[in-house]
Computed example of a mutant assay.
Amino acid sequence: MSDLKSILVIGGTSAQGSSVVKALSESGSYSVRVLTRNSASDQAPKLAARPNVTLLQGSQDNQKDLHSAFSGIYGAWVNLDGFTIGEKSELFYGV
C-alpha cells in the first residue's frame, strides 16, 4: 500500500463525494482518506469497507483537523458544505 498515492476527500460521504471515493478506491492507484464529521453515519462505514479507504473523524472547519487530514497527502478532492458550515466559512476554508 506504500506505493499508492494518498488522496484526501473532504465531503466524501455526500452524493458526489461518495462516487469520487468509490472511483479512487476501485482504481487501485490510490489510498483514500475521508474526513468525516461522523464516522458512524449511514454512509461512512460503507466507504470504510472499500479497499484502500480510511476514515478520519474531524471537521472541515477546524484547522487542527485539517492539518491532520492533509498530513502526508499527495492530492485532495474537496467539496465543502456551505449549508452545514455557512457560506462565510465555506469561502474561508476553501481558500
Rank of each mutant, 00 (worst) to 15 (best):
M1Y: 08
S2A: 12
D3A: 06
D3L: 10
D3Q: 11
S6Q: 14
I7K: 05
V9R: 09
V9N: 12
V9H: 11
V9D: 12
I10G: 14
I10L: 15
G11Q: 01
Q16M: 12
Q16N: 08
S19G: 13
V20W: 01
V21D: 01
V21T: 04
V21H: 04
K22H: 13
K22S: 06
K22Q: 13
L24D: 02
L24W: 00
L24V: 02
E26G: 01
G28T: 01
G28R: 01
S29I: 01
V32L: 02
V34H: 05
V34R: 04
L35C: 10
L35H: 12
L35R: 08
L35G: 06
T36M: 07
N38D: 14
S41N: 09
Q43L: 06
P45V: 12
P45I: 11
A48C: 10
A49E: 10
R50C: 03
R50L: 15
R50I: 07
N52K: 11
G58N: 09
S59I: 04
S59R: 11
Q60L: 06
D61F: 11
D61H: 06
N62S: 15
Q63R: 14
L66F: 11
H67W: 01
S71E: 15
G72P: 04
I73R: 00
G75C: 03
A76V: 13
W77G: 02
V78L: 14
V78C: 14
V78M: 11
L80E: 11
F83S: 08
F83Y: 05
F83N: 10
G86E: 03
G86H: 06
E87G: 00
E87A: 05
K88D: 13
S89M: 08
F92G: 02
F92M: 09
G94A: 06
V95Y: 12
